[in-house]
Design a protein around this nucleic acid. Structure first.
Lengths: 333, 333
DNA sequence: CTGAAAGCGCTAACAC
DNA sequence: GTGTTAGCGCTTTCAG
């Protein structure tokens, strides 16, 4: 009932365990016939090397911890999927934990990762809790923040200011003059801050007024509520697509049809937005590129790369679909 | 630079390794003052037990492998998140791998899980490849299929026939007489088969005609295509919400407004469907309950529960929103 | 090219 | 109560 070990293979093929180890790892040169004898024994016994033992003796694992705030948000689901693909291509496995945005859960999960001796970590929506980063640095576990920024550790994200400016510029170009920034609890705090500030700056730059920001209760909208929205604003820039879709719905409940009565631009570019009944006009983040760069960065550090935090900034892209048009009472163009 | 081990703690507190082990695991009785001395040393040294070593010596891990076809599909993202929560509550960590529906990738990932000696596995969209299940059984690793069915291993899912019947009954009740079943490549084969068969049976039972089934190319729709759809059918039952949303879009491209010209009912009940511009009428699966039951089932097996495969079947629920109404040319009710 | 020996960091009997 | 002793299954020098 007990699994065969390397010793069983050694015995069966009449060689020592180190020779078996050599053929399995493809290390060192082994004479062809010994090699085939070992392989035959492996096959007959159904031997499968024990990764746990290997990790212990090598004093390192090939596991990457991935910390994500909300896997139910397709943007992160897609990102995690891409991260897993790239990691696997380099022989690493991913251990995924969801934090629900809670700082305590985040700490608890990191604690788990640390005990499991993950080789590195990818942080998707870090709570911003300094303690966590502090802990990682103290433990010497490399980490990279993806799709968000962090001065303290490596990161890869998009040029947020540019993205928001693209959104605001698009609305301004359509003739909108009074815009509102919309966020929700599903947006990570730091990201929200950056996007909001960029929004204010972009409004300035494009000669638009900034209406008071809206904090949308997505769950309430999901449950059927029709929240009050600023009547003076004709254009809305949402902090992310999830929020944007909820916003379109909320506007509808307030009898404001998009894009006839109000325009909405999202941020993230999740696949579903192309299908969301309304085709959401949004600022897309290059997910594939982000995942690739993120994985490469942690693996570099794991491989021993030294130096101050590196920050990769990618270009976002405006995807024009149908939720933004000229404001009411104004002819096209 | 090297991490402190249990030995360092022992030395520092002037006791033996096993005593340290005892206080850390809370096993055996330890005198209060030795206990506090050990704890102090742990603290000072920043000692963190090595989970890898523990796993090796105990000959078991507390890792659950989760295999998912498409994490980008919010239904699965949400499910994985829930699974992780329940697993963590029982002291287990999850290792997530995406298969993209490919049978080779699936086998490769399972292979990885096996080397990592996961204690059990949760299969979300098994390709149906008998080889994989065979492998798991041969290796003696417990597995549970969640949100799908499998005769060979434990499973938890919804009563598919009932769910589809709910959808068909709803359309029939609205006055539809000719219905089409719609699927896409994003639907796992076995699930698709079951739902399709249930659809045919339900049409019969509700006195509806079955139009020829539609295989929607979601990616093409995403890319802007307007696929040909059966003109004779007024009601559509989609194999899942993702497909349903694409279908609504596709119908729109064909100048058939939902629900005026055609009605659509989805299946799954992902959170976003409430917000998808159009509120999708759909058959919801009890995700929370599924995750809970699934985790409980594997953990039971891991704990040694014997016996033939068990199958938990939960009740789906019709969620009426706005994509289904009376067919054209027919007054309401 | 192959084998022997020494651990990796921890738990789990079993003595004291 | 606490310490001693064996390993868990593997990789890795280092001899032969």
């Amino acid at each position: 009932m007990t699994r065969p070990t390397i010793l069983d293979v050694a015995e069966r093929s009449g060689v020592s365990k180190s020779t078996v180890s050599n053929v399995i790892r493809g290390a060192a040169a082994v004479s062809p016939d010994v090699r085939s004898r070992v392989l035959a024994a492996v096959d007959e016994l159904g031997y499968r090397p024990n990764g746990v033992a290997r990790q212990l003796v090598q004093r390192r694992t090939t596991t990457l911890g991935v910390l994500v705030g909300d896997l139910g948000n397709p943007f992160y689901g897609e990102l995690v999927k891409l991260l897993e693909q790239h990691a696997h291509a380099d022989g690493f496995t991913t251990m995924v934990c969801n934090t629900d945005g809670s700082s305590e859960l985040e700490t608890a999960r990191v604690e788990t990762f640390l005990e499991r001796r993950v080789a590195g970590m990818v942080l998707l929506q870090p709570s911003g809790d300094r303690g966590v980063l502090e802990l990682l640095r103290a433990e010497g576990v490399p980490a990279v923040v993806v799709s968000s920024t962090s001065a303290e550790v490596d990161s890869v994200g998009v040029d947020e200011a540019r993205g928001v400016s693209l959104a605001v510029g698009h609305l301004a170009g359509l003739g909108h003059r009074r815009l509102a920034y919309v966020t929700s609890a599903y947006v990570e705090a730091r990201t929200n801050l950056v996007r909001h500030e960029s929004f204010a700056a972009a409004c300035d730059a494009h000669g638009c007024d900034e209406a008071s920001p809206v904090e949308l209760d997505v769950d309430a909208v999901l449950a059927g509520a029709a929240p009050l929205l600023d009547e003076s604003a004709t254009g809305f820039v949402a902090a992310n697509d999830f929020t944007a879709i909820a916003l379109v719905e909320a506007l509808g409940r307030n009898r404001r049809i998009v894009p006839r009565d109000a325009s909405v631009v999202g941020f993230d570019g999740i696949a579903l937005t192309a299908l969301a009944g309304v085709g959401l006009t949004t600022v897309a983040q290059p997910r594939g590129e982000m995942a690739r760069a993120g994985v490469r960065m942690v693996l570099d550090r794991i491989a021993g790369a030294e130096g101050p935090p590196r920050h990769v900034v990618l270009e976002p892209e405006l995807v024009v679909r149908t939720t933004a048009a000229a404001p009411p009472g104004r002819s096209e163009r």
